[in-house]
Amino acid sequence: MTMNTKRRVFLKGSLAAGTVGVAVGAGLLTPQAVIAAWDEKAFAAKSVDEALNAAMGMASNTASDAIKIKAPDIAENGAVVPVSVSTDMAGVESIALLAEGNATPLVATFELGEGAVPDVSTRIKMGKTADVIAVVKAGGKLHSARKSVKVTIGGCGG
């Protein structure tokens, strides 16, 4: 009888472990959902227009003085190019950052939420001397600004 009880306990234990295993399995599935949100088509695009179409839903944009890009004129190391994008436009929904000379130009998109000020900074890689393009989506339209950055050592090779 004692044997049997123990056997029951053991079975219960393994059942519980089984449930945990399933839970972990379900947990592992979440990154898949994330990749769905991360737009592969946009990031794999080989041209600026293609990337904008995928990421922002359109490619046509108007140049705007209201967008400011802060980036060095000459980047000694293309692997680390500090870039800041800011604008005083109202109703900014998202900002896309592109490096025109890269094999896949789209570097990042920033979706602004509640209270966010359209002012982001990061560091990007640039394969060669090219324009850094900032595209701001505000009021359902795209506005853009560009700045040329001279790269002395490319950041995409080995």
Binding site: A37, F43, V80, V107, A108, T109, F110, E111, T122, I124
Partner: peptide, 17 residues
């Protein structure tokens, strides 16, 4: 904010907002 990045962001990324 939600940022979507590619490998075009530098190693050990810096972000400010």
């Amino acid at each position: 904010m939600t940022a979507y990045w590619s490998g075009g962001i530098s190693k050990n990324p810096y972000l400010s907002f």
